[in-house]
Nucleic acid binder design. Structure first.
Lengths: 316, 316
DNA sequence: ATTTTTTCTGATAGCGGTAACATTGCTATT
DNA sequence: AATAGCAATGTTACCGCTATCAGAAAAAAT
């Protein structure tokens, strides 16, 4: 293994100079810096993260906390986790999965990634002693990563309009959380710009709840209706019930989901959906946290990533 | 943070004695050992894995290698990964995800977890310089973890018999790999014990391939037939096509899948399936590798975990 | 009782880095 | 020319742990 000392010898400088080239290059003369960089290149030097961690009193561990009672084995979270793992592994960081609130403060670690946070958890965050980044938008100034939910709502609604569906109905999730409001806002704004009247149902995030809604209200839905759903789970239920009602999907009724993680592909009709770049979001989450740790907890702000529309069989 | 030195002082011994109590307890007198253990307890001492790693010249990183061109974002592998992460995190180990064969030897790490290995890869394994454990059975003496595929085949077949299906047909995957043979063996053995004649189709592991098979051969399948499938993916296709043929599932036709990871639950008929304890297998995989690393690569043997049968809507 | 062997414990050094302080050589000031 | 001031580099010590060797004490052998 190539160490600092090897590089130092090759470049005829002390270990410290090499260390400085890596961590505080501005403190080193241009001349020496280049010399050292060459030596590092030639020897293919890579810093030993373990040694760095020891001297910096870090653990190279971050906790992945799922606050809400989430099924973390769902493809959605699995994808997120995968992205996080990718982001962390570049710096040889390990993940610790925390589902039990009791374990949150246990053990040694450098920071948190938190998902499933509800507004009611905000007080709790203020007591955390280590840096953290939230997954999911909030408007309380906590650093977070999310997809641009409002943009996603717009994207879906605009597309429904472009396919000439006359009635566009939003089927949302009955939680009072920012992500939901943002998606609805995207929908409402787009409709209003087009002089159409928004119509919103809010239900639990289950396919059977969606089936219920369609079943109970089917008579109210004229042909040429498109359903903008707040999740693929809901969209799956909507499609299923529409088919049970012998309605023609996508000719007479369109359905657009949200998420784009696995479920959209196993539905018996492949869903048109707003696809979140979950994997990338996970990577970003990891990067943000690692940067925050390195900067001793200084704020990182928000990161909104644009989702994309995937056009498939549930719209015409 | 409580260190070795703190414990040493409390117990009135040197650091080394404490270290020995942890790593080589047999070298320490009973008397001192107990004293030290008490001190560790009272101070709630936990060794610093980073320091350990540094002095042992380890990286606390293992690579998760997916050799086959696997979609690692599939629930099946995600679950595995989750289990692995859990197992590794106890020792603060990090995962590095490797999908590209080129990266296999890159960088610093202590060992491999390898999945998707085909018989043709065995030669390649002999050249690996660091310890590894395979996920998936093999009969070449490499350490591995898998579910007991033969037992799973038996489980499914026995259950089909107990539900009084008269014809029991196996729909397998057309790969020449141990896991497939083992499942088939479980099926064949059970049928022969019951004086029935095995009948096996082998197809690609896709739902539409399964639909094809059912479509093309439906006339050959009398009522009271149960299909034992080598995957939930296949089972899903079988169910779908049977329904398209207006066959009565589960009254006249039964279907049993294999895997029990997510797909079984989103099928329009919830599948009876042989559920692999994937999460546990991941954990075990991690534990085995960490032990192997600690023991400088000594063989760990095989670990077969029994799957369980989940009874749902696709059998009567 | 003395020497040899064995068993146990402690002191030291070092894993690969970095912070803090010490030193060197240079420029600026008088 | 002498001295202060500053920037660039080096020296030292230490992060927490363990292998190695040295030394002390106990057990065994003479």
């Amino acid at each position: 293994m190539v160490t600092l000392l090897d590089v130092a010898k090759k470049a005829n400088v002390s270990k410290m100079t090499v260390s400085r080239v890596i961590n505080h290059p501005e403190q080193v003369t241009e001349e020496l810096r280049i010399l050292v960089e060459q030596a590092m290149d030639e020897l293919d030097y890579h810093p030993n993260y373990v040694a760095q961690a020891l001297v910096n009193k870090r653990t190279n561990v971050v906790k992945f906390v799922t606050l809400e009672d989430i099924d973390t084995t769902e493809p959605y979270y699995m994808n997120l986790l995968f992205g996080i793992a990718r982001g962390l592994s570049k710096k040889q960081y390990a993940i610790q999965l925390v589902t039990d609130r009791g374990q949150i403060e246990d053990g040694n670690f450098d920071g948190y990634l938190i998902t499933g946070a509800r507004s009611s958890d905000y007080a709790f965050f203020d007591n955390l002693k280590k840096p953290f980044i939230l997954f999911g938008e909030n408007h309380h100034g906590y650093d977070y990563v999310d997809n641009n939910n409002q943009y996603g709502g717009e994207l879906a609604t605009k597309y429904a309009l472009s396919r000439l569906y006359q009635n566009i109905i939003f089927i949302g999730i009955d939680v009072r959380e920012p992500f939901e409001y943002s998606r609805e806002t995207g929908y409402v704004n787009t409709l209003q710009k087009n002089k159409k009247v928004p119509q919103i149902y809010r239900i639990a995030n289950h396919s059977h709840a969606a089936q219920e809604v369609i079943k109970n209200n089917f008579h109210k839905f004229p042909k040429d209706t498109c359903f903008i759903c707040a999740s693929d789970r809901i969209a799956t239920g909507v499609v299923r019930q529409l088919q049970d009602e012998k309605a023609k999907v996508p000719a007479d009724f369109g359905v657009i989901g949200y998420d784009g993680v696995f479920l959209d592909q196993v539905s018996n009709l492949k869903l048109t959906t707003v696809k979140q770049p979950i994997f990338k979001m996970g990577e970003l989450l990891a990067n943000m946290l690692l940067r925050k740790i390195n900067q001793k907890g200084s704020p990182q702000g928000e990161a909104l990533i644009k989702p994309s529309l995937v056009k498939r069989e549930s719209t015409r």
